[in-house]
Design a protein around this nucleic acid. Structure first.
Length: 573
RNA sequence: GCGGGCGUAACUCAGUGGUAGAGUUUCUGCCUUCCAAGCAGAAUGUCGAGGGUUCGAAUCCCUUCGCCCGCUCCA
């Protein structure tokens, strides 16, 4: 999908947003009084309620009334059920899911310059005894196949690049050449036909030599860490062996806590769903296609937690695993992708800051037939975007993996499929369902909603406000007696009681009589409260109040007895 | 992990070796009022933490923690 280049508005000030979040009690640093703890954030009163509103909206629109009651590609109402699964599961779960082994790529550090790079990005210049002219694909195939010779050959120089082409570009730089001990490049590098290396001619100081440029195998780095030259200095002996950074948090189960009791905190909630797939099918009258939803906390030991709450080490996900027949999976994938985009729009992220980005083919996991991200242009990613939710077509990968590792059958017997039998019923079909996974980050959602809602309008008496969608706003309404006397507080109290009884389940209802009316409006603007109802002199005589709209500042006068209905309509409650 | 910036009242910040400050906020009065209004008064500090130098440290030095930016990374 190509996106039209949209004019990028000046990003909002993240500092100002963070200051407001702290000032008004949306988000605090975790363990603040101890100096904080890197990568962890707490929610204050308004933030906690706001996040709950977001979670409830998800639950409402994904579990109780999935996709707003829309019909799916099969022409029927979408059916979903919830589960609540644990943060800690059997350690083997994470071996099956692949998180323990290959969660991330091995990294190498240069001990001298302290720089770190991905081991598989290291390209080496190898001098060969075979002159460039004589190198044919037949010769190179023989050379490559003889006991993986490159493992035991140390490159003359190294450079960091994700492709050979990039590496060639990089070593055009004279300064880098000098660093790596390259006198001159005597023949430009060109790709060698049908092989994964490039060749050229280089002078390392002993005259022109034929060289190949190719990936330095990780095995070479392990076996010859002390002699492989650094890509930063050209000096050998400063690179560490490739190290696997495990992003999983580990813990120990039981009071004795030995290595045998090691367990992991989940890096995603999805696996809990796959583990209970069979139990849900067996205990609930659900039939494929259907979804299982799960919200909860996950943990990842991010290398660099940063950007406020965007990349936290502890975060909450709201994930749906939607199971369907393989033949319908692509249709369901498109259905959920489009619905999730519309859903984020419906709660206030409408506009150019939200995009749906389809992953390129080479970005996809080997098992996936499609993945899209719902991405938001955060102030700190602008003009780029940051991921809010990933919608992935996971195929039958997860159920197959767990079936293999657990030894438990996880297939599904579909009685609506197969040829029709003489008695009228279907023969049935046994298969492992495919799974479509819309996985949303609730903390990232809250952050995006806050960033989108944050508005500075210098023409207003109160320039800073949060234009939060009424469904998400933690404070739903405020009641103000214009003056703290003449019977107004008593009327306000009564109205407050009424609104509290009707809407107190959805969020806070506030009452405030302190200070000037302007300050009270300003306070509510900053907290994102969409509506303020003010009791004035006229209320006492004509039984009407003013409603002030947060976004426009406009006021209208409505009957005191109509306030409940008015607010109910606006909140969609 | 590297480099740069920052850390002083609830908030925004001033304070380059000599008694910790301003504005806002909050609170108490008064005023009585539809947009951070006015007047008077009051409250609020382990100067991020630890150590050192000094007669004396918010200030200089070392260590450490956290936040922001860039690099790096991002199943």
């Amino acid at each position: 999908m190509t996106t039209e280049p949209t004019p990028t508005p000046a990003p909002k000030s993240m500092d100002a947003i963070m200051a407001l979040c702290k000032r008004r009690g949306f988000i605090f640093q975790a363990s603040d009084i101890y100096g904080g703890i890197n990568g962890f954030w707490d929610y204050g009163p308004l933030g906690a309620q706001m996040k709950k509103n977001l979670r409830e909206a998800w639950w409402q629109d994904m579990i109780l009334n999935p996709a707003w009651g829309q019909k799916g590609p099969n022409g029927e109402r979408v059916k979903c059920v919830p589960v609540e699964t644990r943060i800690i599961q059997h350690p083997k779960v994470w071996e099956a899911s692949g998180h323990v082994g290959g969660f991330n790529d091995p990294m190498v550090d240069d001990k001298e310059t302290k720089q770190r790079f991905r081991a598989d990005h290291l390209r080496g210049l190898y001098t060969t005894s075979i002159p460039s002219e004589e190198m044919t694909s037949a010769v190179s195939a023989v050379v490559s196949s003889t006991a993986n010779p490159k493992v035991n050959i140390v490159p003359r120089a190294t450079v960091i690049a994700s492709t050979e082409g990039e590496a060639v570009e990089a070593i055009k730089d004279k300064k880098l050449q000098k660093l790596l001990g390259i006198r001159s490049i005597d023949e430009p590098f060109t790709p060698f036909p049908e092989m994964s290396f490039w060749r050229g001619k280089v002078n390392f100081g002993k005259g022109t030599e034929s060289v190949t440029l190719e990936v330095v195998p990780i095995e070479t780095l392990k076996a010859h860490a002390s002699t492989v030259p650094s890509p930063f200095t050209g000096k050998p002996g400063h690179l560490t062996e490739p190290r696997q950074f495990n992003l999983m948090f580990s813990t120990y189960i039981g009071a004795t806590a030995t290595e045998d009791d090691k367990a992991y905190l989940r890096p995603e909630t999805a696996q809990g769903v796959f583990l209970q797939f069979k139990n849900v099918v067996d205990s609930t009258r659900v039939r494929i296609p259907f979804g299982i939803g799960n919200t909860g906390t996950s943990f990842r030991n991010e290398v660099t937690p940063r950007n406020f709450t965007f990349r936290s080490r502890e975060f909450e996900q709201a994930e749906l695993e939607f199971f369907c027949h393989p033949s319908e999976s692509v249709e369901w994938y498109k259905f959920w992708r489009d619905f999730r985009m519309n859903w984020w729009k419906s709660i206030g992220l409408a506009g150019d800051n939200l995009i749906l980005r389809e992953h390129d083919k080479d970005e996809l996991s080997h098992y996936s037939q499609g993945t899209s991200d719902v991405e938001y242009r955060f102030p700190f990613t602008s003009p780029g975007f940051g991921e809010l939710e990933g919608i992935a077509h996971r195929g039958d990968y997860d159920l197959t993996q767990h079936q293999k590792h657990s030894g438990t059958k996880l297939d599904y017997f579909d009685t609506t499929r197969g040829e029709r039998l003489p008695n009228g019923s279907k023969k049935g079909e046994r298969y492992i369902p495919h799974c479509i996974e819309p996985a949303a980050g609730l903390d990232r959602g809250v952050l995006a909603l806050l960033c989108e809602a944050y508005t500075v309008d210098a023409s207003r008496p109160s320039p800073e406000l949060l234009k939060l969608h009424p469904r998400i706003a933690p404070i739903k309404a405020a009641v103000f007696p214009l003056m703290d006397k003449d019977g107004m507080p008593e009327v306000a109290e009564k109205l407050y009681d009424e609104l509290f009884a009707k809407f107190g389940k959805t969020g806070f209802i506030e009452m405030d009589a302190k200070q000037s009316i302007g300050k009270r409006y300003a306070r509510m603007d900053e907290a994102g409260c969409p509506f303020c109802f003010t009791i004035d002199q006229e209320t006492l005589t004509a039984q009407t109040v003013t409603v002030r709209d947060r976004d426009t500042g406009k006021q209208e006068r409505i009957g005191l007895d109509k306030v409940g209905a008015y607010l109910g309509e606006k909140l969609g409650a």
